[in-house]
Write a protein that binds this DNA or RNA. Structure first.
Lengths: 195, 195
DNA sequence: ATATTTTTGGACCAAATGGTCGTCAATATG
DNA sequence: CATATTGACGACCATTTGGTCCAAAAATAT
């Protein structure tokens, strides 16, 4: 290609921007903050991403992709199902304790801040939850077929229950990052639904 | 009292403001929007509430008070415990379906938007969750003493589990307000924890 | 070496932001 | 009635907002 090559890596910029949006939310993040975090000038940023909203979408997409990647790693079909589910829950327990908990979750925050006002965002959030629910459902169906899930219970319903529970933990732990109570909740859940 | 009397009811103004914050969030709500919703002039609003932040705190306090009032009504100690818990859950199912679901929950939205950056807000949110958890715990202890709660299970842990689940439902239903799945989740929960 | 293409950085902009203040109106008190 | 006190209103303000644009620089292809 002709012309002067880019001096920055767009993916790095997206990652930096993601960090700012993550800690501050969309509206509370200003252009100057974004510029400082990404080390870009206004011109470069707008040329590369269109506008603040475009950059946010990129950041959100990245966050979602990362989340699903971790989920897939935890629920790897080659592993023992229950180990996978436990790993997944354990990860959320970690994420809802200590300093990390205060940072919250970009998806949850975005769902609440823009979920019903920005169609592009709404679509992404909905897809994420659908994807997460689907992965959990698959895992639970596997558990069920191995007779390791409680009998009377439907995998898809439990999947949604777990998803809501985990996301709710992220909300509550924003102002109360108590590890042990998250731990206890997850343990109780497992006790009642799994064998 | 001396001087010209107020022409507006501050509580009405707070309620109107609450509505705007509820649908748009703190940062996305502008002064002009607040002025239109409350029918106040800038001068009056600032004289009565200090600033945008002060008005928001009042609105949040009101929302919290309303929520706890409803919770207390549902979990009325004079009623059958399980009926109370069921009523409480049913209320959340209602709130997470249809148009109302898209509006979300001011507490959850505020927790995510300001929870870790605004100490006054953080305090209020934390207190709310503590209060909600405490009420649920009390109800569940009553259920336990009546042997209507699953045996191996601890009321305080189940209380937190339910709270997280309900708040998580509010998050997920922001972009997927499917009544029947909320219904099924709640039913499954009851099936596994209650007799 | 030159022409071409693209990036860069920041000056610049209009609009919107939250917030203040002075003037006038309405009531209570003497 | 006169005065003191408070409220209402909107003009006004400094700052910040997201966004545009252009001149200079830089790097490639010819």
């Amino acid at each position: 290609m002709r012309g002067r090559p880019r001096e920055f890596d767009p993916d790095d910029a997206v990652e930096s921007a993601m960090g700012v949006f993550w800690t501050s939310g969309y509206h509370a993040t200003s252009l100057p903050e974004l510029l400082e975090a990404t080390n870009l000038s206004r011109g470069s940023l707008y040329a590369a991403f269109g506008d603040k909203h475009g950059l946010f979408l990129r950041a959100l997409d990245r966050y979602i992709a990362d989340s699903l990647t971790r989920l897939d790693a935890d629920l790897d079909p080659r592993k023992d199902v229950l180990d996978g589910i436990r790993a997944c829950l354990a990860r959320y327990v970690e994420r809802t304790s200590g300093a990390g908990a205060k940072r919250g979750c970009l998806i949850v925050a975005t769902a609440m801040e823009l979920g019903s006002q920005d169609v592009e965002v709404e679509q992404r959030i909905r897809r994420f939850f659908k994807a997460m629910e689907a992965r959990l459902t698959t895992a639970l169906e596997r558990a069920k077929s191995e007779r390791r899930l409680a009998d009377e219970v439907e995998p898809s319903t439990v999947a949604r229950l777990i998803m809501c529970l985990l996301e709710g933990m992220r909300v509550v732990s924003k102002t109360n990052a108590d590890r042990s109570s998250s731990q206890a909740v997850v343990q109780t859940l497992l006790d009642r639904f799994v064998r």
